[in-house]
Design a protein around this nucleic acid. Structure first.
Lengths: 232, 232
DNA sequence: CCAGCTTGCGAACATCGTTCGCCTTATGCG
DNA sequence: CGCATAAGGCGAACGATGTTCGCAAGCTGG
């Protein structure tokens, strides 16, 4: 639905301009996301990048919301889904979760769009179908499959957003983001030891990255719990 | 830090106006959040509610970001933290997670603020300390405690935001939210059965709420996985 | 009683999403 | 081939937003 229909731009003579199609508009918006984050996507900035004005965009897209949803759908098209495996469900599940996270993080804080509304479009459905395939092939009960897809999607999206925010953080460069995060870490380090004994005791562990990253750890907690609900 | 210092409004005669203090400003903003969501919080709307103009607010708050962080901190002050228990860590952990979620959801989509930046303020630290206390008293390794707090906070916040969005959704009333969500459900129901066999097969389970809600299920998956990492 | 600092606030600026109305251009039809 | 009709492009503007400026009013300390 929506996107990939044949959409001939009805080319006018030989213009240097890259026409003005949904594809081109979405591509320009995606470029802006990659370069400066979702907040940098403005009707005007997208229009500028296409050498036109803001009003022209509304001939191809109903508004900014739809535009961002189209951008997200295009991003999720990059996700390669692994096939289900009847004997090993953890492998494909971890692979898919990491793949979705990788793709989202490859496009800055695009995860913010995924968190701002329900998943719509062909590619979210495609990914959900792949998750369900892995779980159902492994023999999980239907209700567990349904809930697992829901919780897993939420966790992956939330982590991607959280991780991305520590990189871009608002409207200034990634340098300011790191500075601000170090500042937060310092705040927790300087808490009074009498009222926050455990926090102070763990001040090193709290901000350390171990042999396995936080995302994978949380994911495996999830999967361990899931394993206990197989065929139950 | 920041908030609860003695801040005498230097009362001028007997004005009917509620002075104009940080407390009053945060209170007005919180009222707006409760009534119409975070997006309804505008420098102008907050000022109107206090019978003044937008510029006045900047004498007590550096900007909108800080204002929303103060609102979040005041909301989190409502969270009652349970004491740790050396024999039962699951009980207090589930109680605290549900309490945080309850408080966040009691204030509309305030969770959006929590997701838009790192946790700052006295109350996030207080809650983190309580989580650490529960886990450390139960004898978990330090690194596991640190990661668990991080993942648990992320999960609770993300779920609260997700749940709230299904209620308020954007700028119109909750009626439009329910309508839009039903529309999404219909989209998944109408997917072609040949390319989305599992999704179609589970169409009822995907949107059904069972004896236990989605949040608690995900939480228990987490805790099951955590149990396996005790003293390991 | 006055100097100086805090606080309140009217006005304005830049930027945003979106709409209106007019013009150009391509297309279908005779 | 010529023309009417519809679709696409775009300048200008509207309303709303976050934030800043500069001045006035008030309190405070001497």
């Amino acid at each position: 639905m929506t996107d990939s229909g044949a959409e001939i731009p009805a080319r006018r003579g030989t213009r240097t301009k890259p026409a003005l199609t949904r594809q081109a508009i979405v591509g320009a918006a995606l470029d802006l996301v990659d370069r400066a984050g979702v907040d940098a996507v403005t009707m005007r900035s997208v229009a500028d990048r296409l050498g036109t004005g803001p009003a022209s965009i509304y001939r191809h897209v109903t508004g900014k919301d739809e535009l961002l949803e189209l951008v997200l759908d295009r991003v999720l098209a990059e996700v390669a889904v692994p096939p289900p495996h009847p004997e090993d469900w953890r492998g494909p599940l971890i692979a898919l979760a990491r793949e979705v996270r990788r793709v989202l993080l490859a496009h800055n804080d695009i995860a913010a769009v995924a968190m701002s509304g329900p998943p719509v479009g062909g590619n979210p459905a495609r990914i959900a179908e792949a998750l369900l395939a892995i779980l159902r092939t492994a023999g999980f009960p239907d209700q567990v499959c349904a809930w697992a897809v829901d919780r897993l999607s939420l966790y992956v999206t939330a982590d991607a957003l959280d991780t991305a925010r520590q990189r871009v953080m608002g409207h200034d460069g990634p340098a300011a983001a790191q500075r601000r995060w170090a500042q937060v870490a310092q705040y927790y380090r300087d808490l009074p030891a009498d009222r926050f004994p455990h926090t102070v005791a763990l001040r090193d562990a709290l901000f350390a990255d171990g042999p396995v990253d936080r995302f994978t750890l949380g994911l495996e907690l999830f999967l361990d719990g899931l394993a206990a609900r197989r065929n139950g």
